[in-house]
Amino acid sequence: MISRTPARRGYTLVELMLSSAITAALTGGLASSLYIASQSLDVADGEWQDTREAHRVLATLNRDVQSALSFSELTSTSVTMEVPDRDGDDAAETIRYSWSGTVGDPLTYQFNGGTVQTVAGDVQSFSLEWVSRLIEGVTRGS
């Protein structure tokens, strides 16, 4: 006669506890190695931070130049431009970016002749090159 034993359906409590403990140990080891690796990177005070900040400042300057209505100053180290209304007073705004040309001096920003603000400190080099052309406007007849 053949004896039939019931089929095993699932895991025992001991197997589940053991697999949970192993998973927790592996996860803890992985988290620790990631933490140690992240501490070895000094991204807040390094060259990466400076590069990212320079890209942000140049992107803002580029956006302002592209939206400019006119320019009153165009030199290799400064630009003053008139841009469309930004503060809701129905008048164009004047924006000025300037660098003294001295290594280590900041790049500054001035809005409507207000307070001069530093947008990038310890600038090592900054040079604007301009290609200009006159675009004739279209006037409508009366």
Rank of each mutant, 00 (worst) to 15 (best):
T12D: 04
I22Y: 01
G29T: 11
T27E: 01
L13S: 06
I22W: 03
M17E: 04
D42C: 01
R9M: 06
M17N: 02
S40C: 04
L16E: 00
S33W: 12
R4S: 06
E15V: 02
D50G: 03
L13Q: 08
T5H: 10
V14W: 03
L41F: 14
G46P: 01
A31C: 09
L34R: 05
V14H: 03
I2A: 11
G29V: 02
M1W: 10
Q39V: 02
G46M: 04
A7H: 08
R9E: 06
R52A: 14
Y11I: 03
G46D: 07
S40D: 10
Q39L: 14
D50Y: 00
G29Y: 04
T51M: 10
A44Y: 11
S3W: 11
I36P: 00
I36M: 11
E47D: 14
E47C: 01
R8C: 00
Q49H: 15
G46Y: 06
A37D: 13
P6Q: 10
D45K: 14
T23L: 15
A21H: 01
T23R: 02
I22A: 14
G10N: 06
L30Y: 12
A31Q: 08
E53S: 14
E15M: 05
A37E: 12
A25D: 00
L26A: 15
S19V: 11
Y35T: 09
G28D: 03
D42M: 05
T27Q: 07
L26S: 09
A31V: 13
R52D: 12
W48L: 14
S32K: 08
S19C: 08
T5C: 05
L34K: 03
D45Y: 13
Q49R: 15
